[in-house]
Amino acid sequence: MPRSTPDRRTAEAAGRRGERLAGWWLRLKGWTILDRRVRTPAGEVDLVARKGNLIAFVEVKTRRSAAELDHAIDERRLARVAAAAEVLMPRYAGPGDDIRVDVILLAPGTRPRHIENAWIG
């Protein structure tokens, strides 16, 4: 396996920090974090969270500036998260639970931007 470049390692570390921050922020909003960085053959989900009977499969994107957040997520990436969520639903959701795909966008100096129900597929 090829070694990762310093830029890749820096991006990976920033992504992990962003996921920790997003998890902390969701907990402050009353969510319980069920899992982190769950990989499936269909893709990866950064956070799985529960609030009441709602299960959210959350994609977290961290950027260097607020201006970059507008282009941080695209339909292709959301489709992969949604596909992974479909694989994971039986593991985390029970009868009567609602499911959705959310996105949390993070940049220094800004409040986290939580896009609820980002994937409608």
Score class of each variant (00 low, 15 high):
54 L>E: 07
34 L>I: 14
36 R>L: 15
26 L>F: 03
26 L>S: 10
10 T>H: 03
85 A>N: 08
57 F>C: 04
3 R>S: 14
52 G>I: 02
42 A>G: 04
82 A>F: 08
52 G>W: 02
16 R>V: 06
6 P>C: 00
77 R>T: 14
66 A>F: 08
69 L>W: 08
77 R>F: 07
46 D>P: 08
45 V>T: 13
8 R>K: 00
84 A>E: 10
18 G>L: 13
28 L>D: 11
16 R>D: 03
33 I>A: 15
30 G>S: 15
26 L>G: 11
32 T>G: 02
50 R>Q: 06
84 A>S: 09
73 I>D: 05
22 A>C: 06
27 R>W: 02
70 D>V: 12
80 R>A: 15
86 E>G: 12
58 V>T: 09
75 E>N: 13
71 H>I: 03
48 V>D: 05
52 G>Q: 02
3 R>M: 01
43 G>R: 13
33 I>G: 02
41 P>C: 14
80 R>D: 12
81 V>L: 12
66 A>G: 07
81 V>I: 13
9 R>K: 14
26 L>Q: 09
7 D>H: 00
72 A>R: 08
71 H>M: 05
22 A>W: 06
85 A>R: 04
80 R>E: 14
70 D>G: 07
5 T>N: 00
77 R>I: 11
80 R>H: 12
41 P>I: 13
20 R>D: 10
44 E>Q: 12
81 V>S: 12
82 A>G: 13
34 L>W: 15
61 K>I: 09
19 E>G: 01
19 E>N: 03
56 A>T: 09
14 A>G: 02
54 L>K: 01
63 R>G: 06
6 P>S: 01
10 T>I: 02
84 A>N: 04
48 V>N: 09
60 V>F: 09
11 A>M: 00
75 E>P: 03
76 R>T: 12
47 L>I: 10
39 R>D: 15
5 T>A: 00
55 I>Y: 09
65 S>T: 13
31 W>T: 01
6 P>T: 12
41 P>N: 14
70 D>T: 09
76 R>D: 13
17 R>C: 00
53 N>Y: 06
3 R>G: 03
85 A>S: 11
49 A>H: 07
35 D>R: 15
58 V>M: 09
40 T>C: 15
45 V>G: 10
24 W>E: 02
55 I>W: 05
86 E>R: 13
42 A>K: 14
74 D>G: 14
31 W>Q: 13
3 R>D: 12
21 L>V: 10
31 W>S: 02
5 T>K: 04
62 T>M: 09
83 A>L: 12
23 G>H: 02
80 R>I: 09
17 R>Q: 07
79 A>S: 14
49 A>D: 06
80 R>C: 07
46 D>S: 06
34 L>Q: 15
18 G>I: 03
43 G>C: 10
46 D>K: 05
71 H>V: 06
82 A>Y: 12
81 V>D: 11
8 R>T: 02
47 L>W: 08
20 R>H: 05
80 R>V: 07
37 R>Q: 15
46 D>M: 11
68 E>L: 13
3 R>K: 02
3 R>L: 03
86 E>D: 05
21 L>H: 07
81 V>G: 10
45 V>A: 10
23 G>I: 01
19 E>Q: 10
6 P>Y: 15
73 I>Y: 04
14 A>W: 12
12 E>D: 01
